[in-house]
Amino acid sequence: MGETETQAVLHHGEKRATAAPEAPRSFAVADVVLRFLLFAAAVISVLVMVTSNEKKTFSVPLPTNPITLTEVTRTSKWRYSPAFVYFVVALSVAGIYSIITFLLALLALMKRSMPTKLLSHIIIMDVLLLGIVSAATGTAGAVGYLGLKGNTHTSWAKICNRYHKFCRHIGGSIVVSLIASVILVFLVLLNIYALSKRIPK
């Protein structure tokens, strides 16, 4: 009994030893690098969005006397639109999650292996995060497009002809979050490929 057990263990070890070179070390390195890039993209897009507030002074005709102009100061803030609030929350979640998984990936790189169960759970969490981040990109993109072009049917006027810095910040932030979701797709792809490489033939 003991002998068969040790044999089984040996067999298992042998399998591991043969399976190990199949998942190359470059995969783990790429995983770490991509997770760091994801963290950077999430932080940058949150920072750019948060610093987008713009104060502007407009000359508006008085309602009582339309010939004289008065100065009115208006501020455009990202917090005014629920879509941008959701965007900031989602990208912050992505940043925190990417720190945690970055540390896990670094640990796996040093110990040279990650348990299969943990790897599959990380893939599932990555897919979930992909859903969250792409939804955030979609919401912010839709509202940003409305702000850029306006909509004549619903008489929603565009605001980007007045707030330049605000719109530039929001556009940049959306582009960076799009990059973040593409990085997430590559991460999941890489990890699925690594997982499929581990299957003993």
Binding site: L130, S134, T139, G141, S181
Partner: peptide, 17 residues
């Protein structure tokens, strides 16, 4: 996976509007 990304972004965009 790509469908997940596309559908969630479309849902997010339409939800915002």
């Amino acid at each position: 996976l790509i469908m997940v990304g596309l559908l969630f972004s479309g849902g997010g965009a339409a939800t915002a509007v």
